[in-house]
Structure formats: C-alpha cells, structure tokens
C-alpha cells in the first residue's frame, strides 16, 4: 500500500484532502460576489454558501483517495452531490420567489432561474476544483515526489481549473451589448415621454406630474448591434434591469419599462428614493444578460441563410 494503511489515513492523503478542500472552498469564495447586486450580502446567505462549498469540496477531495483504496462506490458520492446541488437550485428559486412580493419591483421568473442556476453551477466549481487538485496531487505522489511538490501541484492545478471554469461560466452584461445613458423626461398633461417616446399616461394628478418631472429618472438602453435588441427586448430581461435599478436606488413610486420598436431602444423610468445617477448607469450596465434570453447570432444567421 506504499506505506499507506487502509485503516489509518496517511500523511500524504491527509495533505491531499486538506489542500483539495481548501482549493475548492477558495474557488467558491472567489466567485461569491458581494457587489452592486448586493446578493448575497447578508451574513447568513454568505455562511450558507461557504458551508455548501466546503461540503462540495470535501466530496471532490475524498473521491480520489476513496477510489485508490478500491472503494469504487465512492463515485456514487458524486451523484449524490449533484442531487444535492440541484436541491440548492430549487431552494434558491423558491426562496427568491417568496421574496417577490416584498421587493420594489419583481425580479421575474427568468432572472430567478438565472440566479438559481448560477448558485448550482458555483457549487460545481468547488467540486471540480477540489477534484482536479486532488488528482494532480495524487499523480505527483505516484511519481514519488516530495510532499511539498505535491502541495504545489495541487494548488497550481486547482488555480488553473478555477481560471478555466470561471472564464467559461462568465456571462455578459447589458453594458457589453448596449449603450446606456440618462434621458430627459417630459410630462405633457397626464402623458409622460422620454426623448419623444411615449412611456405612460398614468400621470393624471398634479402630484404625479410634479413627482415624475422633478424626481423621476429615465435611462435609455440602445443596443449596439441590431440583434442585441432580441435579448434586451425580452420581458424577463427588462424586468431584471428594472429590478436591479430599483433595488439599488429604491423606488418611491412609479416604474415603467418601454420598448421603442422603431429604434430598438429600451426605456426605464422610475422615481427613486436616492437620486444617484452615476450609480444608476453602473447598475443598468452591470445587469447580467440572462442565460435564458441569450441567443447565438451566428447560429441564427447560418440558419437563415440555409433556409
């Protein structure tokens, strides 16, 4: 058994498990963003995700030593982990749906689906990174190279796999496919226009007219390419943008999104609690392009040519 007893864990295996768990958990921590979206910014949310990452990394870390000790049933642990992560997605989805009625504007099902999928995928980060880390350490150990080199190999392999996966799973944001700028609001009687485009006629009272004119903010999102409008015009995508904007600045009253079919522009208008225009532009630009609305322009084009 190369000095490794079947009953008592060897120092090499212990190092392997510790390093692999550490790499896997760290990979999850690095993608646990507390950014403009402020999610999950609350302490309990962060704790839940760290603990889940630790569990995922542990499964990945012990898989290699388990297989090495002829315990092939260890592979079933991976299947168990996948099932567990699916539950994470389901729980996340249910939890976000429960919160829908308490938000300034709803996230919408498309955005919730995207967030839940991301949380599931990020647990796989921890699992795959720890698995790669453990495998590389095992390969180095098989070459009878010292423990320090095994640790270094584990860290390097884990880092490389993390880089590859995080680059692969990184999505685009609204700012990547469109120009975002502030726009002027014009109130004419009970009708509200943003740069000549009709938005609503619900400003029937003087209070509403004053509030929208003085305190309202409007943003125009212009797709940089014509096909980008397909994703931006999507109802779920517009809801997600409005949600991020109102969540960051608050919403005193009124919120509208409008599509301008002629120009392909999207208009977002609302009355915020905090009037921070710079932040508004940033948050709209950084709203993720939802996975469910993304279309491959190249595929669409080739299909059209074939037809």
């Amino acid at each position: 058994m190369d000095g490794r007893g079947p009953m008592i864990i060897s120092t090499e295996d212990l190092w392997l498990i510790i390093i692999a768990i550490a790499m896997g958990t760290m990979a999850r921590l690095l993608v646990l963003k507390v950014d403009y979206k402020q999610y999950p910014s609350y302490p309990n949310g962060v704790l839940i995700h760290i603990v889940l990452a630790f569990v995922a990394a542990s499964i990945g870390a012990v898989a290699i030593p388990a297989i090495k000790s002829n315990n092939y049933t260890a592979v079933t642990f991976l299947a168990l982990a996948v099932q567990n992560f699916r539950d994470v997605r389901k729980t996340e989805r249910e939890s976000l749906k429960d919160l829908e009625e308490t938000e300034y504007t709803p996230r919408g099902n498309a955005y919730i689906d995207g967030i839940a999928k991301t949380f599931e995928a990020r647990n796989y980060f921890a699992l795959v990174v720890s698995l790669a880390s453990a495998a590389s350490m095992e390969i180095v150990a098989a070459l009878h190279i010292g423990i320090m080199f095994q640790v270094v190999a584990g860290v390097i392999a884990g880092s490389i796999v993390y880089q590859v996966i995080s680059r692969f799973s990184k999505g685009k944001s609204v700012g990547d496919v469109a120009e975002v700028r502030l726009a002027e609001i014009k109130v004419e009687g009970c009708e509200v226009f943003v740069e000549g485009t009709f938005v609503t006629n619900l400003a029937g009272t003087e209070n509403a007219q004053k509030m929208i004119e003085k305190e309202g903010v409007a943003v125009i999102i212009e797709p940089s390419q014509k096909h980008s409008a397909i994703a931006l015009h999507n109802f779920g995508q517009r809801k997600a943008i409005l949600f991020e904007a109102t969540r960051t600045l608050g919403a005193k009253r009124y919120n509208f999104t409008r599509k301008d079919y002629e120009t392909g522009r999207i208009i977002i208008l609302f009355v915020p609690i905090v009037r921070d225009l710079e932040k508004l532009i940033d948050v709209v630009k950084n709203t993720p392009l939802l996975e469910s609305v993304k279309k491959s322009h190249a595929v669409l084009r080739s299909k059209a040519v074939e037809d």
Binding site: N201, G204, T205, N207, A208
Partner: peptide, 24 residues
Amino acid sequence: QKLTLEIAKTVKGDVTQLSNGIYL
C-alpha cells in the same frame, strides 16, 4: 380633481385623464 386625488390615495391607484375630461 379633488375627488380623484382622494380616491387615488385611498386605493393607492394611478390616475389618467381622458381627452374629454373624465378621470379614471
């Protein structure tokens, strides 16, 4: 106008005015 505002506040509704002067 006064009545419209009072009702709108009570039901937390939005108001629109038709071209013939009716408030909804």
